[in-house]
């Protein structure tokens, strides 16, 4: 093989693909890398969004350590994550399992569960705000049915407001998980399941020992997405409660937004944003770790 031919092949194999990828990579670097660098830079400044930023060293981080609202928001994010890692996942898994066993009408049930997901966030949040309205929402129906004891100030009671908002998001979101599980179930090796049944295993045992282990890659993906999304949660809280009552539904993202937009502190808001990025980074590192341990992720 001539040197020229070898060089041409080398070019084709190793450099040409990168050349094709270059525009996308440059765009990615600009769109993702730029704001990340900007956020890191701003977190060390006192920028008010108007005047030129001044470097303040670790002052913002010191403030963060003593910031009560940050801890409240962080705790709420963790609660939010706990809700989303359990309720919708269990609901979606059960429903997907049931739908997968149906011979006729599968498409209908799949569509019904997925419909809420195609509604826009604003529409869903406004809809649930109406449902939670203490003067005209679900409370009125409960009172009409003689179930007054169930009537609550759904987003006005600090003890349940976060769960009420999360439930609205969950209602909108869980159909997406159903679809992910159904896709995962389509990849299952049916012969293993059939073998287990022949061996006399009951439905629950088949599910626990055969189906669920095979769904592990889907579950891991879902958990990774849910954890990262939980730390970025913003829209439902912002539309329905804006973090209230008090700080009962304040999340890191809503707190950051308030600081940057209402309180003219995008410098400090960047510090809060950085912590959100750090949490997301830790999650990804964690999943990379379990992947290296041999999990099929």
């Amino acid at each position: 093989m001539s040197v020229a031919k070898h060089s041409k092949q080398h070019w084709k194999k190793s450099l040409f693909p990168w050349l094709l990828l270059a525009p996308s990579l440059l765009l990615l670097l600009f769109v993702v890398g730029g704001p990340i660098i900007g956020t890191i830079f701003l977190s060390f400044t006192d920028w008010d969004g108007i005047k030129a930023p001044s470097f303040v060293g670790l002052e913002n981080f010191s403030r963060l350590i003593h910031d009560k609202t940050f801890y409240i928001a962080l705790a709420n994010n963790i609660k939010w994550m706990a809700i989303f890692l359990t309720i919708p996942v269990i609901m979606a898994l059960i429903v997907a399992l049931l739908i997968s066993k149906i011979a006729r009408g599968k498409l209908f049930y799949r569509t019904v569960t997925f419909i809420p997901y195609i509604l826009s966030t604003v529409v869903t949040a406004k809809l649930w705000s109406l449902i939670y309205n203490p003067f005209s929402g679900v409370n009125t129906a409960l009172e009409d049915w003689g179930l007054d004891f169930l009537a609550q100030s759904w987003i006005g009671d600090s003890a349940i407001a976060l769960f009420s908002v999360a439930f609205a998001d969950l209602w909108h979101f869980w159909g997406f998980l159903v679809v992910l599980f159904l896709m995962g179930m389509q990849q299952l090796d049916k012969s293993i399941e059939e073998a287990a049944v022949v061996e006399g295993a009951g439905r629950l045992r088949v599910f626990w020992h055969v189906t669920l282990p095979q769904l592990r890659p889907t579950l891991v993906l879902i958990y990774m997405l849910l954890i990262i999304w939980s730390f970025a949660a913003f829209d439902y809280v912002y539309i329905m409660t804006q973090g209230g009552p008090g700080k009962s539904t304040e999340l890191l993202a809503t707190y950051m937004y308030d600081l940057a937009i209402y309180n003219y502190q995008p410098g400090y808001a960047s510090t809060v944003a950085l912590t959100m990025g750090l949490f997301a980074g830790l999650v990804i590192i964690g999943f990379r770790f379990i992947q290296k341990k041999g999990w099929d992720v």
Binding site: F41, L42, P266, S270
Partner: peptide, 17 residues
């Protein structure tokens, strides 16, 4: 460079709303 970076960050923060 500073101004460009600041603008990108602000655009990121406000894009959702």
């Amino acid at each position: 460079v500073t101004v460009v970076l600041l603008l990108m960050v602000i655009a990121l923060i406000t894009s959702a709303c």
